[in-house]
């Protein structure tokens, strides 16, 4: 097996985005936001959605963290750890591009 390079890893300078075929969409039947992906539908919680909505290919991870620290009035370190872990997990599942 020829592995095409190492897997993408999140850094503060990564600029995350959703691939074109991963859709964040409000579902009027269930009154919730769904993530539509090949062969799966996911229902992220509010904290997850706050990160995903900022993955539009314009902001660095650093910027997203700063933004959420202000919004939640929370500790920088805690938010940073959560955001980085979340994005790494979603990138590992090919749901977020870095």
């Amino acid at each position: 097996m020829r592995v095409p390079g190492p897997k993408p890893t999140v850094s503060l300078r990564s600029i995350p985005s959703l691939p074109k075929h991963i859709r964040l969409q409000f579902d009027p039947v269930r009154q919730a936001v769904a993530v539509l992906a090949p062969e799966q539908v996911l229902w992220p919680n509010e904290a997850g959605l706050d990160i995903l909505r900022r993955c539009d290919g314009r902001f660095t991870v650093d910027h997203i963290i700063a933004d959420l620290v202000t919004e939640y009035d929370a500790e920088q370190e805690e938010v940073a750890a959560d955001v980085i872990a979340f994005l790494q997990d979603w990138s590992d599942k090919l749901l977020v591009k870095l």
Partner: peptide
């Protein structure tokens, strides 16, 4: 083994 090596590159179901 392949799943492990291909995390973030290709999902194997």
């Amino acid at each position: 083994a392949a799943r492990e090596k291909l995390i973030g590159i290709m999902n194997i179901d």
